[in-house]
Write a protein that binds this DNA or RNA. Sequence first.
DNA 1: GTCATATTCAAACAAACGTAAGAACTATAT
DNA 2: ATATAGTTCTTACGTTTGTTTGAATATGAC
Lengths: 207, 207
Amino acid sequence: MTSNSSNDTKEKILNVAERLFAENGFAGTSLRSIISEAEVNLSAVNYHYGSKEELFHAVVARIAKSVVKGQLEKLGQFEADNNNLTVEEILEAFIAPPLQIVLNSGDRSLHCARFMGRCRVEPDSIREIAEQEFRGNQKAFLDAFGRSLPDFSRTELAWKLDLAIAVLVRTLSEAKKPNALIQDTSPEHIQAVASKLVSFLASGLRS
Amino acid sequence: MTSNSSNDTKEKILNVAERLFAENGFAGTSLRSIISEAEVNLSAVNYHYGSKEELFHAVVARIAKSVVKGQLEKLGQFEADNNNLTVEEILEAFIAPPLQIVLNSGDRSLHCARFMGRCRVEPDSIREIAEQEFRGNQKAFLDAFGRSLPDFSRTELAWKLDLAIAVLVRTLSEAKKPNALIQDTSPEHIQAVASKLVSFLASGLRS
DNA sequence: GTCATATTCAAACAAACGTAAGAACTATAT
DNA sequence: ATATAGTTCTTACGTTTGTTTGAATATGAC
């Protein structure tokens, strides 16, 4: 079930789709460009995924599942150790997992990173597919920020969290470009990046 | 030359294109959807603008010109008053003009705002058109930050400025949505938003 | 080997795309 | 009124799009 030829083509499609969707967006990517790079037949997409939109959904789901899981686990970990979390700890739980997951994706890491950026800026109909998969972390982290910064309204925390995500996603999207913060994917570098982002955002959250 | 019927259709096209490009991106927007909403003939696009890409360029140019001009003027103003600018002043010069220009665009303000967000995430070939028009502010502001924060490398200031733009652009894109920072376009509200963004970013820039 | 099932393939579908050509119409100037 | 230039319209070209169909091939069970 994990290494027969059908799974090869199914996964090849998923990987190429991830890269092309990341580079050109949903509308800018044709199924023919995907199957051409994946070296599979055109019908394979509809056979394995049903439609272009469901293919997109599959790409989102693969990334979102592990990212959200990683974030919630890390948050839970911090909360188990200590009842009153600092803003820095919450940010760390939010930022470090996606950075590490993206890092550990090997060849896919860059496309994976940029795909996350794409998701937030697709037209509403497509974006909704993505937001739905990523939404699982929203409430928990807003609650955590609310406990840590009780003087701010829920609305203010919401837009601040949204801007924090914008910063995280932009950092991922620009990875390895000139002047970008992320320049390689070694664990030490990624940890340093996480720290810099936490510092960059922490005082903003408190402001 | 400013109010005959041909300029009406030319401008109607530009306005509708701005909105649809903002909502659906370059690839996701068809000329036929533009001319349909603008209630003009299909050929009018190629007659007045030459091609879809040049139409996009025209939309970019209209916004970018005034935004960059506003930013550079405000920066120059601050520098005339005072040789050693604070990070807050530089940020104010960077952030306030686009907010005010977008505010003063009347009906177009929201689409205008979201279009700016689109520009940064289009595929490279399209994005290049936009970056070229907006790039005019980059050097001046990097220099300003360099003087104000001499301990940071040019590279570090570059990605911090990039993240600041990400925050600004996200704020504009999300305007008037639930929980967004921008909730109306009154001058007082916009000034308050600018202040909040400056505070949010200032300590990050220094971190 | 035989059958059923799963997967790939070539071919075609209707629809939508950007662009172009030429006729029709409008406005301006002489 | 006539000629000229500017603008709009209809029509159509050649591609490309996502999806479907049915035949061909591979895979696994008995």
